[in-house]
């Protein structure tokens, strides 16, 4: 049988060794007589090769001593921490003071953490506020219809002013947890300049806040690094999937709204 209609995808899979033996053999036979096929295939073989060559110098570059040292410290700290107590949150090695970016999200676990509420029990939104961790987080802070609406409409990467309590809502990401429940990571700024970094997951027809860190401070509506480190540890614990892409997120959020 003669086929000249191999798609680009088929040819690419051939070039990447991702094609089954039968079709591979067919392509090989065809290549003996079809120059155009060879040329199309060459693109995929050569781009793979060229990409690898072009990225090789990055691999050979010496690692910055600072990075190696920092990672070694983290490893040493984690190894000893586990031997002693199984502690799970570690301070980050402080980077050079002149690194302006580092201060935003890699600062040491800091005093700016006013409260941490991280429980797999969590508490429920929209029930008039009966948080399991009494008094730590003002119940009104998260249980408002405005917040629920924001969770279902604001796409990740966008902000919205919540009506009522003068809070600013920022959607960070949408993902699925270990049990495939839909979760959203978000931040809420309050007028007192505190920021709540939070995760809410869908449970039935409700949003359940499963994680919240209140970060006080001077960050001007920007969760300080220490709170996001705690968040990272939490996301790891629930085995959070990668953030949904915009298209998928829009679909999922649209589906939630339709249920209403």
């Amino acid at each position: 049988m003669t086929r000249t209609d191999f798609s680009d995808e088929i040819l690419m899979r051939f070039a990447d060794g991702e094609l089954d033996a039968e079709i591979s053999a067919e392509i090989e036979r065809e290549m003996e007589t079809d120059d155009a096929l060879v040329a199309r295939l060459a693109l995929f073989i050569e781009t793979r090769h060229a990409a690898k060559i072009a990225m090789q110098p990055l691999l050979e570059e010496p690692l910055p001593a600072e990075l190696t040292a920092a990672v070694e410290r983290v490893i040493a700290a984690k190894t000893s921490a586990q031997n002693e107590s199984g502690a799970s949150v570690l301070p980050f090695a402080r980077r050079a003071a002149n690194d302006r970016r580092a201060s935003r999200w890699l600062a040491p676990v800091a005093a700016s953490l006013a409260a941490v509420i991280a429980g797999f029990g969590g508490y429920w939104l929209g029930r008039g506020g009966q948080p399991t961790a009494e008094g730590v987080l003002p119940p009104t802070a998260l249980s408002s219809p405005a917040l629920e609406e924001a969770l279902e409409t604001v796409v990740s990467g966008e902000e919205r002013q919540l009506s009522g309590p003068n809070q600013r809502f920022r959607a960070i990401a949408t993902f699925r947890d270990n049990d495939q429940a839909l979760c959203r990571e978000f931040e809420v700024d309050s007028p007192d300049r505190s920021t709540v970094v939070s995760v809410a997951c869908r449970a039935g027809a409700e949003w359940r806040v499963t994680f919240a860190v209140v970060a006080r401070g001077d960050s001007g509506g920007y969760a300080p690094a220490s709170s996001t480190e705690t968040l990272d540890a939490y996301l790891t614990a629930i085995n959070a999937g990668a953030p949904l892409e915009a298209e998928e997120e829009a679909k999922v959020l649209g589906g939630l709204r339709e249920q209403k």
């Binding site: 990075l67 920092a70 990672v71 983290v74 490893i75 984690k78 799970s88 949150v89 570690l90 980050f92 090695a93 999200w105 890699l106 480190e229 990272d232 540890a233 790891t236």
Partner: peptide
């Protein structure tokens, strides 16, 4: 660095 931290955790 952050990824290493998370991986170890």
């Amino acid at each position: 660095q952050a990824a290493c931290e998370r991986a170890l955790a």
